[in-house]
Design a protein around this nucleic acid. Structure first.
Lengths: 185, 185
DNA sequence: AGTATAGGTGAACGATTGTTCACCGTCAAC
DNA sequence: GTTGACGGTGAACAATCGTTCACCTATACT
């Protein structure tokens, strides 16, 4: 296990960066100077960052999970190195401040493979493009549907043939765009 | 904005906990003792934790995103308090060490609403229960399917009528259970 | 042989850390 | 009116922080 992996594993279990003294034993050195040299390299390599003053800051690397291309390749042996990794949170969330989660209620988007009980990641906004899945206020009620626009008219389409398109009587206000979905088994 | 929110917002932007000096200005105090008292309260309340020695550790609260029950309730006004929140990563990942991500290739699980291009969260294991979605090695090939067992026989079922069940000729080894799915738009 | 260079030790440094103590005002309860 | 709890100030504390310097030992290159 190299220095980077040791750092990451420390961070994951302790939820913070180690101090230089802790890295002494973590890396197996006897001099803090040796640690400082290692850290200097890691900072240059972009593995970790340093604060305005000194403190070590983790990069997104520190919360990543192995990403294997396809199921067909199988799993790597435990301990075997993986080159591609993914940070789940930053994959799903682009703008944290304006992001909200919703629990899906109903099957109106089932043909888009958004099922009852799924959780959608939505980003607050007031505009959308044709084909976006949006959360909108139609005549006072909120729903999640496909956003459609044609010849200046706007309406919402469900992804379920048992439901009908929704044409607003008075108003259709977009409040959020659905950026992702997740589901747990 | 109360102390807890200030801490969280500091942590989210700086990726680490503030020092007592930083909290001095963050909270608007003039004495570190005032800070210490606040922290003491927050530790009791379980908002933050302390290390084996002194250092402040964030709880899962620090990476959470507002979770709104249902779409029908709409979005809260910006700045309005939300009581329910969710940590995406810990929602999807239970055992980090044995968790792997796969990009889904093909439509064989489409009726389970796992589509081509989705990313599945899989947990390495060697046993599964009837109905689990598993990644398995069947006669040398890896696939993702429903795991079925009856009368001592084991086989795999796709979630797509265009595909046939897979009965192993020689071996069927489970390598992982699918614990979740995610998709980005 | 001579000499960089990389990677390590060991000791020292001032700065900052988290903690603790004595003290002070305000408010509510008795 | 006195008391006690609460929330704050200000100053001090040893311990630890990250940094830096001189030095040592291999290995590789002229």
């Amino acid at each position: 296990m190299d220095y980077q992996e040791k750092l990451i594993s420390f961070y994951q279990s302790r939820k913070r960066m180690p101090t230089y003294s802790e890295m002494l034993s973590l890396f197996g050195f006897k001099s803090k100077n040796a640690v400082a040299r290692v850290i200097e390299k890691l900072v240059e390599a972009g593995v970790v960052t340093k604060d305005k003053l000194g403190k070590l800051i983790p990069t997104s690397l520190f919360d990543e999970i192995p990403l294997l291309g396809s199921v067909k390749a199988g799993l790597p042996a435990p301990g075997e190195a993986v080159d591609d990794t993914l940070n789940i949170e930053s994959y799903l969330v682009r703008k944290r401040e304006s992001t909200y989660l919703f629990e899906v209620d109903g099957d109106s988007m089932i043909d888009a493979h958004i099922a009852n009980g799924d959780i959608v990641i939505a980003e607050r906004t007031s505009s959308a493009r044709q084909g976006d899945i949006v959360i909108a206020n139609v005549d006072g009620e909120f729903t999640m549907k496909y956003f459609c626009t044609k010849n200046g008219k706007v309406w919402l389409e469900p992804a379920n043939k048992n439901f009908k398109p929704i044409y607003p009587e008075h108003e259709l206000t977009i409040v959020a765009i659905v950026r992702g979905v997740m589901r747990k088994y």
